[in-house]
Computed example of a mutant assay.
Amino acid sequence: MTATTPGSLTGAESRNRVGGETVGRLEQRRRRAALLFLLPTVVALLLVAGWPLLRTVYLGFTDARLGGTEEAAFIGFTNFGYLLTDPAWWQATWVTLKFASASVVLETLLGMVIALVLNAHLPGRGLMRAAVLVPWAIPTVISAQMWGWMYHDLYGVVNTLLVGIGILDAPVAWMADPDTALWAMVAVDVWKTTPFMALLILAALQTLPTEIYEAARVDGVHPVRVFFRVTLPLIRPALMVAIIFRALDALRMFDLAYVLAGGNPATATLSVYARQNLVDFQDVGYGSAASTLLVLLILLITIILLTVGRVRLAADTR
């Protein structure tokens, strides 16, 4: 038996060490290259999004007015204290949460149904996919203006249709009535953004292995049971991403509420409320504080959704 000194290595051990060091150096080079490629994007995001956000947070602690932000004085948490005691801000918060919750739930359910239909092997499937994306391709401002005409109490096609088929006895001023204005906005948002949810869910469905469904079909498992026990758990990560994206978008919704309702307090979201204080009342400090609280609300809801998603994923993997 040949003895080896502690500092000596056999040929195989030497090759393994050299190979490991080479792989390690390659990995480090790849990481440095990836960081270099990401650096321009990170810098652009910091300039485009990071600096305005920090500026808005800072102005929320001042008494800045429109056109005089440079002379603003630091007043601490005064603006935030006023916000938390302002009934209009709480009304806007409640409207935003109701709008986001109703929109995201309906869009997820309808998007799931549409995605399942588009994923099936039906004739004209390509044309159906293109047609479904049309509402999503229309800019939100144009969609809001179009639906505003359709909701008109005298000349709108919605009232004409509902009165014609006997659902309504008389035309309804959809956007003037606080009881119907919010749900009218939800209907428009569902019409426009459901294709986005359907597209994301369809992309997840098309990544699923067909062997699982063939085995279930051979075993005679009911399609509904296959959906809840196989399809839904497999697409849950993609579904959670889609829900988070839509929730973030719905919570900061501005253009739809502003164009359709024109700043009506009954349908004013947090974004509309912040804009009114910034522009209409020219109170930059107060409006910036409202925007800051909106960002914090979105951050809190995002953390909750991510936590719930991780818990569900952990439960599915057990």
Score class of each variant (00 low, 15 high):
2 T>M: 14
4 T>A: 12
5 T>L: 15
11 G>A: 15
11 G>T: 15
13 E>L: 11
14 S>V: 02
22 T>Y: 04
26 L>P: 03
29 R>Y: 09
30 R>T: 10
32 R>P: 01
32 R>Y: 11
33 A>Q: 09
38 L>C: 13
40 P>N: 08
40 P>A: 10
41 T>S: 12
43 V>H: 04
43 V>A: 15
44 A>F: 13
44 A>E: 05
48 V>L: 09
49 A>L: 15
51 W>P: 06
52 P>N: 09
53 L>S: 12
55 R>A: 12
57 V>I: 15
59 L>W: 03
60 G>K: 01
62 T>N: 13
64 A>G: 03
67 G>E: 11
68 G>K: 10
71 E>W: 08
72 A>H: 08
76 G>K: 10
78 T>R: 14
81 G>E: 13
82 Y>C: 10
82 Y>I: 09
83 L>P: 05
83 L>K: 08
87 P>G: 05
91 Q>L: 11
92 A>I: 01
99 F>K: 00
99 F>L: 10
104 V>G: 04
106 L>T: 13
107 E>Q: 13
108 T>C: 13
113 V>F: 14
114 I>S: 08
118 L>M: 08
119 N>L: 00
121 H>E: 15
122 L>R: 09
123 P>M: 05
124 G>H: 08
125 R>V: 14
127 L>V: 14
129 R>L: 04
131 A>N: 04
138 I>E: 07
140 T>W: 01
140 T>G: 00
145 Q>R: 13
152 H>R: 02
154 L>A: 14
155 Y>A: 07
163 V>S: 12
167 I>Q: 07
168 L>H: 00
168 L>I: 03
169 D>G: 15
172 V>C: 04
172 V>M: 04
172 V>E: 01
175 M>R: 03
181 A>H: 00
182 L>F: 01
185 M>P: 02
187 A>H: 06
187 A>D: 02
188 V>Y: 01
189 D>N: 15
189 D>K: 11
190 V>R: 04
192 K>L: 00
194 T>F: 08
195 P>L: 02
197 M>K: 04
201 I>T: 09
201 I>L: 15
202 L>F: 05
203 A>V: 07
203 A>T: 12
203 A>I: 02
204 A>V: 05
205 L>I: 03
205 L>H: 03
206 Q>V: 07
207 T>D: 11
209 P>W: 12
211 E>L: 06
213 Y>D: 08
214 E>H: 11
215 A>F: 09
218 V>I: 14
220 G>S: 00
220 G>D: 02
226 V>E: 14
230 V>P: 00
234 L>Y: 09
235 I>H: 05
237 P>S: 05
239 L>P: 02
247 A>P: 01
248 L>M: 14
251 L>D: 02
252 R>V: 04
253 M>R: 09
256 L>Y: 01
260 L>G: 01
263 G>D: 00
264 N>L: 00
267 T>M: 03
269 T>W: 02
271 S>F: 02
275 R>T: 11
278 L>V: 07
278 L>Y: 06
281 F>D: 12
281 F>G: 05
282 Q>P: 07
283 D>K: 13
286 Y>L: 05
286 Y>W: 05
291 S>N: 12
294 L>S: 10
300 L>S: 14
303 I>C: 11
304 I>D: 07
305 L>D: 07
305 L>F: 12
311 V>G: 14
313 L>I: 14
315 A>W: 13
316 D>F: 10
316 D>C: 03
317 T>A: 15
